[in-house]
Design a protein around this nucleic acid. Structure first.
Lengths: 344, 344
DNA sequence: CAAAAAAACGCAAACGGTTCCACTGGAGGT
DNA sequence: ACCTCCAGTGGAACCGTTTGCGTTTTTTTG
């Protein structure tokens, strides 16, 4: 069928071993033989069978990325595209392939990742999200498989991971609003079991506390990473007797919903309500008004994650050296928070 | 190291062949043996080695999707995320894995796809874009590898492909604008070597012709699938002595740029200029004003593509039955084109 | 110039499965 | 009681590579 190493060997009058050694340019192959074999390979259209190779070498030169539980919801987010782009670019650059997998629920995720790792189809995994108590992490950890987490785990603080300092990022964002004179600052959060929601909430609270401002329960709502969440949050906030004048929002996508809600209720951004959110996906600058956002370097997160993982799996002694890579963030101030509250 | 079929066999007191047969539940294995072997597999934590399996079965149960040339630009688009989501979902559902690959340029794409297919790492490929003269298509076609095209090829009309009827879609969109009373309708196109640009332009032209309207060269601009393109198009259009009153725009992302340009120049949408674009990515409904868009069922495109490909590779006699799947489109009319031109 | 060292290459055993073919034992047919 | 047939299983070759070790050839060296 397809031309194998043996065919090449026969044609070149050498042994298969020699051909193999030419392939991996082994030091003890003569210039001459190497040249000749390569020529014949070219001529016969030889391509190494990757499966056979990984069978014996016990390494697949590929990694997988596990999409979070409700891929249907979250996948919509530009966030993941950016991340994947970073991962794929880096991986391909290092000669690795990337395999994408998703599961309808956490159990299916575990099954998928088990099939992939246990079946030796991939060398390692990248997890795009860290839930509070993640079965996938448990699995990977207990089987001692190489993996890197984009985010962080509370249960295992010492994992190989790449993350944003979300507490600090939220702190900075909140402080920015405070510096504009706001005293009543609300927070629109994501799913409470996501570490990222918790961290950002924490930074928000810390900034308020440091400024001597009160943090009111009714100024905090939880939701999903969906536009609807922002929209619903608005009808709630705006019916309050005492409304927040500024909002920290857990994700840009939610901000879009907030924007729409505010618009429909007749409020102006930033005059009536100033807002700032996280991730700085493209499009934040295109909304009206353009959204202030904390750029967390998504592409970079993916790129770094891939790099860290591949470095680990390449390491022969397979010791996963735990390390937390923190990707720097920075505030992108745009119109949605370019308004200082008049002193009243 | 890891528990193999032989370990299980030994422990169960049967031969490896039998274990293998249990795995693929071969008809001629007794209930009893099957039960027992399965029990032992469970107990020992056996997982089949996928590489070994594909080495002999010559099938990998995985496909790859090739990201278009400048992944860095286009990847940004929500379009691809939706598509990939559809592909991955369907593939996983059919027990297939999906491998993502990108290349810096067309040659690298060919190399990647060659490595993957020739190296027997994947069974088939999905191409996300059809350029005018695509080397990847040439490669796949001439090597007789199974693949499906999302889009269409002019060179080979008879490929397995899934597509939108872009001519008709553009026709419908344009006709919609005409029905609102517009006579001066412009077109913002994408890269001219992309079939999709050409088709949409064709439909646009056809609708104009059918309505007896003129199609002026200066009302057509070409660009990229980028916001900037839309932005630039606006400064051009709006400096024309005779400006179009409505625009058909090749992609939603470009519309966002158009919107910004128009906003900065002080024009109102839809009163001064009505616009409609293609793809209906989420966020079209969130812009101000919400964008009219032709929904082309992106997720469905991906889902169908994956289905078609897997069906093909599963077919033993590997004959790729050419077929064009057309995914239906539909107009989503929103505020950006909800304005009838006053009779003047 | 012989011996030792180095260089270049071949042999064969893996890697973990699948599958064709052969073998066994019991059921059914005559 | 003998033959046939078939369900159930085992044996062994093979898929296409890699690699440790041994063998041959060449070069170096005393």
């Amino acid at each position: 069928m397809s031309v194998t190493i043996k065919d090449v060997a026969k044609r070149a009058g050498v042994s298969p071993s020699t051909v193999s050694r030419v392939l991996s340019n082994h030091p003890r192959i003569s210039r001459e033989t190497s040249r000749k074999v390569k020529e014949i390979m070219e001529e016969m259209g030889y391509h190494p069978n990757i499966m056979a190779k990984s069978l014996v070498s016990k390494t697949t030169e590929s990694i997988c990325v596990i999409l979070p539980k409700p891929a249907e919801e979250l996948f919509l987010n530009l966030f993941f595209m950016e991340l994947i782009r970073g991962i794929v670019t880096q991986a391909n650059r290092s000669g690795y392939d990337v395999l994408i997998s998703s599961g309808g629920n956490e159990k299916e995720e575990v099954e998928a990742v088990s099939r992939l790792l246990n079946g030796r189809r991939v060398d390692g995994a990248i997890l795009l999200y860290s839930r509070q108590d993640d079965q996938v992490v448990d699995f990977l950890k207990s089987n001692n498989y190489p993996f890197v987490l984009v985010g962080r785990s509370e249960k295992y603080p010492d994992l190989l991971s790449v993350d944003t300092d979300n507490v600090q990022a939220a702190y900075d964002a909140t402080k920015h609003l405070i510096s504009l004179g706001h005293k009543r600052i609300g927070f629109v959060s994501g799913p409470p079991n996501l570490i990222v929601s918790q961290d950002r909430m924490k930074g928000y609270g810390k900034a308020l506390a440091d400024a001597g401002l009160e943090m009111r329960k009714e100024w905090i709502v939880e939701g999903e990473f969906l536009q609807e969440s922002g929209y619903r949050a608005m009808s709630f906030f705006m019916n309050l007797p005492e409304r927040p004048t500024a909002l920290v929002i857990v994700d840009d996508i939610v901000s879009f919903g907030v924007l729409r809600g505010l618009h429909e209720l007749g409020y102006k951004v930033p005059e009536d309500v100033s807002i700032i959110s996280f991730n700085n996906i493209s499009l934040t600058e295109l909304s009206t008004p353009p959204l202030s956002s904390v750029d967390i370097g998504i592409y970079n997160l993916g790129y770094t994650a891939s790099q860290a993982l591949i470095q680990t799996v390449r390491n022969d002694d397979k010791t996963v050296l735990p390390h937390r890579y923190i990707i720097p963030h920075r505030l992108m101030i745009r119109e949605s928070s370019m308004y200082s509250l008049p002193k009243s």
